[in-house]
Design a protein around this nucleic acid. Structure first.
Lengths: 354, 354
DNA sequence: TTGTACGCGTTATCAA
DNA sequence: TTGATAACGCGTACAA
């Protein structure tokens, strides 16, 4: 009965079971066949001593931790959106299929550029919210740590292909914008993500492209990047809409595309206060991931489902391909298509008797 | 230029900088003062070789991983609710304050009883959703791993005090029920959590207690435990309400308390289809954590905020007190009060002209 | 500061 | 085939 004593180790078990260290090791790792009789002795001794193989010592020699990292940057306080939640779920579930677990590591935006003082106890890492010339990417390449980016990396200083998983952002916003233009909306406001995020440029390209395709004039102020001052997306939606729509001479836009579900909620609130009806006065589409939420707004929100869970799962798959060293021959890029869910917040103006 | 070679280790650096291993170690860990000149040599050599201290080797000797585990059981597929999300946020943020990170470990409900084959590379662990006689608790005690339970553990086979963090569930449901009774609701339906979860019994006690206090009859069918068949809480709310309220002779209840926000959404949907108005026909209160959601239902939902983020943060604080060995003298129990947010989904029947 | 034992498994290599 | 032996991985800590 060694109670408060330190845990038993492999030597104690070997001694008690009258076998060697190596045999105990093989019993637990199944690397070599062991006779049932010996196995039994070892298990009995282990149970008696309360022995469990030490994960750390094992990792030291196998160089596997059975863990992948997930690096989530945050701006001021950590707040996980439903996009994050779904993405994390996808990562965890896919990792679990391979008996891997997920180490969540949050970093303040300001610290993104600072290298870690020690290597992480992980076999690979998924990084979120890549910024232009994101220094995390060069660090990881130096350390030779397998990694995958969620979102489109734009590192000009890196010549190798960076593996990443992303939505078809340009195409997705093109399609959404195009469908609005086809429905007779000529003035569309886009509340885009912050300019520092690479995704915002793809989306802007799709937005502008749709106007060009339809031979309609695009004005630069129609694309509105989120200013960095906001840490509350709801507030961003509310204040921006209030500012843009609080005008004497009618509503300047007949449709809006907004970055996230939370921005949409803020926008809805502002429009309600301004007595602007959705969808009759203004149609609204959110690039969103919270399907529960969108069903329970009034009106039900037309959204683009970003399939965050798939993004997470695909990033794990790609990461494992990298970890297995197949990276050279494989696609470095996985595109997860977004899906338009049409609900009640969009109206067709062509049919209207305006 | 050792590129594809293995990473440099402490010996390589020591050799190149012309110092001993120990000195290099101290330069990185700051355990002993080192002259600036030597420090500089070491840093230069490290940079040249791309050396970073190996976290695993360090853990092996310090016996610290700077990581805490978070064990989340799931029933069928892993789905993280907003309660989980907030809780995780609280855990991560509080851990980050101490330079700790969080290893998320999900376990299928069915596997809760199966011991792990190796010790986890963590310094302590937080476990969620304790069940009656949860075997994880005895395992952790055997392994001497510091742990904290979120929710009330009920292990009859364990005599020691189990440290846990919980809401004041009995009191909270008592208050909520009491306030409804005071408002003239005599028939209240409680869609409780599954009977297997310890929390459901505390809540039932508060529910029943409020009837007793008000000298009103409590009927056993008024407390409805969630059957284990559901893995979708929305469906649970929808189907149960449909079944209970789809009757010829008027609505059998004038008020409902439901377990989570998602159950509330399902309940709202069913009531809408049954043409039962909330709150005029039936008042509704959700034991919920999603403040965004509750603002955007129609009507806005009266909820009890479970303060999941605080639950997470407090559990980390308690865990650290345990890890520092102070457990003997300290409180093993932290209660995080829930907070009633009154909104539009509850009506006062005493004032009505019924 | 330096040298060196140490922690705890794994994995050749060798022996039976 | 199975079992035993010894070297190894990578820092830390303590005596010299």
């Amino acid at each position: 009965m060694k109670e408060n004593k330190d845990m038993a180790n492999i030597n104690d078990v070997a001694k008690l079971a009258n076998v060697s260290k190596g045999t105990v090791s093989n019993v637990f790792s199944n690397k070599r066949p062991i006779s049932d009789e010996v196995k039994d002795r070892v298990f009995k001794a282990s149970k008696q001593l309360g022995y469990t193989p030490n994960h750390i010592a094992r990792s030291l020699v196998t160089k596997k931790t059975m863990t992948i990292g997930l690096k989530i940057p945050y701006s001021k306080n950590l707040t996980l959106s439903s996009f994050h939640t779904n993405l994390i779920t996808g990562v965890i579930s896919e990792a679990a299929k391979r008996n891997y677990r997920v180490l969540i590591d949050t970093i303040a935006q300001d610290d993104v550029g600072i290298p870690h003082l020690t290597t992480d106890p992980i076999d690979g890492v998924i990084i979120l919210d890549p910024k232009q010339n994101d220094e995390r990417i060069s660090f990881l390449q130096e350390l030779n740590t397998p990694f995958v980016v969620i979102g489109k990396p734009q590192n000009l200083n890196v010549n190798e292909a960076v593996p990443y998983v992303d939505n078809n952002n340009e195409e997705m916003v093109f399609e959404v914008t195009n469908s609005l233009l086809q429905k007779g909306h000529e003035h569309i406001l886009f509340l885009n993500a912050p300019e520092t995020m690479t995704v915002s440029h793809d989306r802007k390209a799709g937005f502008v492209g749709a106007f060009e395709r339809n031979n309609l004039p695009y004005r630069n102020e129609d694309n509105h990047f989120e200013p960095s001052i906001y840490d509350d997306p709801n507030k961003y939606g509310y204040e921006t809409v209030y500012e843009k729509f609080n005008q004497e001479n009618g509503t300047p836009y007949t449709a809006m595309i907004v970055d996230t579900d939370k921005v949409a909620l803020g926008a809805l609130r502002a429009l309600r206060e301004l007595n602007i009806n959705v969808p009759n006065d203004v149609s609204l589409i959110a690039l969103s991931d919270d399907l529960v939420l969108s069903h329970d707004t009034d009106p039900q929100l037309t959204t683009v489902d970003l399939a965050a869970s798939s993004l997470g799962a695909e990033s794990v798959k790609l990461l494992f391909r990298n970890m297995e060293g197949e990276s050279e021959r494989l696609n470095h890029r996985v595109i997860v298509p977004a899906k338009l869910n049409e609900r009640a917040s969009v109206v067709n103006r062509s049919n209207e008797k305006h």
